[in-house]
């Protein structure tokens, strides 16, 4: 039945369905990232570029 339903669907409806699906997922992700964000989960990971360790030396390269 669904096979026939999709087979008889106007082809213009398919991209609209895809678009609504996409927008739905987009909105959920955006809400999760910007509104219901929790900072603790990945706080350590996010700090990684800022952790350079303790500089011992900047050794000159033999020319």
């Amino acid at each position: 039945m669904f096979k026939q339903y999709f087979a008889n669907m106007e082809s213009t409806a398919m991209p609209l369905i895809a678009l609504w699906l996409f927008l739905g997922v987009f909105v959920v992700v955006a809400l999760r990232v910007f509104v219901f964000k929790t900072t603790s989960d990945f706080a350590t990971d996010a700090q990684l570029p800022l952790d350079d360790g303790t500089a011992i030396s900047t050794r000159e390269v033999k020319s």
């Binding site: 360790g53 500089a55 011992i56 900047t58 050794r59 390269v61 020319s63």
Partner: peptide, 10 residues
């Protein structure tokens, strides 16, 4: 002088 960095990491 070109330098290479050495660090101590935990």
């Amino acid at each position: 002088k070109a330098v290479n960095t050495t660090v101590e990491v935990t």
